[in-house]
Nucleic acid binder design. Structure first.
Lengths: 358, 358
DNA sequence: TTGTAGGCGTTATCAA
DNA sequence: TTGATAACGCCTACAA
């Protein structure tokens, strides 16, 4: 009828609650015989711990480090930061403190510096966006050695089996883009894939998106009918950026779609505005303010949302569930690839992103 | 530094913890003077209750009634049911019991019967899908009189100010459909709006969706270019249903889109299959298995997901937050209008719908 | 009108 | 290797 408590198990096993607790947490100092007896009873009665009581009773304080890009350099990071802060606030009651370490997402050196700081802070758990593959590996090794669990988000790196990965499926998002383009123009269209960034960091991501798009056409036996042009554009020199675009669109007047694999779709929209181009439809990523502006004007058709806020939020929560509540957590957690357009935007830009999903 | 506790407030106010507790819960038996002093201190120290401790300390058991459609009659209700059960399982630890009362969604009489049963069970809170407007009103009055809070989902009825409404914005979902159609065919297309059901129950919903679609075209100054045909179709007589469709499509060969305002899009897809019609694109609602089948085949282009699982889940959670944790809860909670297509479907059909949003 | 004591299920400390 | 006991923060009788 009622919930099974530690005490119930203790009575049945003819031991004290303390002993059961030691078994539950594998703290040792329990004879093998008693341990097995207790474990069996736990199984039989299928005991489920009361997380409230556990949270209340535990005195341990947890310190987490969150290693993310600095919104100062790229507004994209505002959302992960908010999500982390929201989760941090909720977890404060359980004695969790989260410290943010924010690096320049265009500077591997900055990443290393902040990762070192984070390591030095001796956290009980780490949430990070491992943007720089080569640079992050030594840290993975160090954390593994020190048995500090880490959760990855934003960029997937499977090799060093993190506690968990939260994030987007880049490849699949490319497929979504493919569908949107195909749906928008069943007749053979012509597509520009634009990888736009300030640095060519983190290109694995972008390549996966491109592959997803290309394979959409292959899988649907449409590849021979479609024309796909690819451009890698850098924003550091804006004049050059415009020049490159000029060249592309002048020599490819047939282009009908532009798929921007980064959060810079608004740069294309802005360019089109200046050049009075209105027939090319744009599909991009991320609900950053500049993109939303153009989405609302209609100059961007769709944005694929990777729920960066949710990534930060659930990233911290994975650490909390694992360390504080000692729950089993899933090793990988893909967030939905939301297709966002002007008409359903409102439901994606506030808290609803945290509350509405399972 | 540490969290503010009731005791801290008590000390500062020179009263006992019991008095502070009485003020916090407005249980009376506190002199006006003391009450104000305590309230001020609570404000100043910005006290935040510890929900764990609160849940642990309270002995009260809560009984909730959930009044929903029976999946036996319409598979749509499988998801709300799962969501409710999931929330119920999580809330069990706080002494919450949820009883399901499932009515035949096509039979107002059945609704009344189940609503009466639910009322008789004397619940502390009620979650319901008030599908039958006229029939539900007396129950609203009764519950109001007995001060039983109720949360609405699926169908919005504002008049009797429920504790909260969880659900979809039908009108806005019509706008989303409008965008998808417009995007899929910038040239003036021809659209069939199909209201398909077994009974013409709950038509307010469907009308709102239709209005949303029509207004999309109006607002974008496209209405004169678009042709919209409307059909109300009944499934009870399948032969007649087919006949009606035959008539529509034979006399309107120009049709390019079909917007199904119910979860019956698959019926149109099936019909097209039989008639070898493949050029008309279908947009519908709800991720029920039959729809998913056709979504995966490509015969349905998009499904608008109203996250019925989430509706059930968050509905129960609103009651829990309000009654168990005495949190402030929002009076209305719109769930995102997810645009689901074959390529992003996977992220919408499992638990991710509950975990990924704020 | 106010204060006190005991309990919720778990953890942690200390003594046995 | 074990058991008893005092927290954790809040709620609720009951006593004052």
């Amino acid at each position: 009828m009622k919930n099974i408590r530690i005490k119930d198990i203790a009575v049945k096993a003819k031991v004290s609650a303390g002993t059961v607790d030691r078994v539950l947490h594998d703290r040792g100092n329990v004879s093998e015989k008693v341990k097995e007896r207790i474990l069996k009873i736990i199984e039989e009665m299928n005991y489920e711990p009361n997380f409230m009581a556990r949270a209340l009773g535990t005195k341990k304080e947890y310190h987490f480090a969150a290693l993310i890009g600095d919104p100062k350099y790229d507004a994209y990071w505002l959302d992960p930061k908010s999500g982390i802060q929201k989760a941090a606030k909720e977890a404060r009651q359980y004695g969790v403190k989260v410290t943010l370490f924010m690096f320049n997402p265009y500077d591997p050196g900055s990443f290393i510096k902040k990762a070192e700081e984070a390591s030095r802070s001796n956290p009980d758990g780490i949430l990070l966006a491992p943007m720089f593959y080569r640079e992050v590996l030594p840290f993975f090794e160090a954390w593994k050695a020190k048995e500090i669990p880490f959760v990855l988000f934003n960029t997937q790196i499977a090799e060093f089996d993190p506690l968990s990965y939260i994030g987007q499926d880049s490849y699949q998002s490319g497929q979504v883009a493919g569908k949107l383009i195909h749906y928008g123009q069943p007749n053979p269209p012509s597509v520009l894939i634009a990888h736009i960034d300030e640095e060519i960091s983190n290109s694995a991501h972008l390549t996966k998106k491109e592959q997803g798009l290309r394979n959409y056409f292959l899988q649907n036996n449409l590849s021979h009918q479609y024309e796909i042009i690819k451009a890698e554009l850098n924003l550091r020199n804006y004049a050059l950026f415009v020049e490159q675009l000029d060249a592309i669109f002048e020599s490819n007047p047939q282009l009908q779609f532009c798929f921007v694999t980064t959060s810079k779709a608004f740069e294309i929209a802005r360019y089109f505005e200046q050049k009075f181009i209105s027939h090319i439809r744009i599909i991009g990523y991320d609900l950053i303010p500049q993109n939303l502006h153009h989405l609302n004007k209609g100059s961007i058709s769709f944005l694929i949302n990777q729920n960066p806020l949710g990534q930060g939020y659930w990233g911290i929560n994975q650490l909390v569930d694992h360390l504080v509540f000692k729950k089993e957590i899933s090793a990988i957690k893909f967030l939905p690839l939301d297709i966002v357009t002007k008409e359903n935007l409102n439901y994606y830009i506030d808290d609803s992103l945290l509350y509405n999903r399972f």
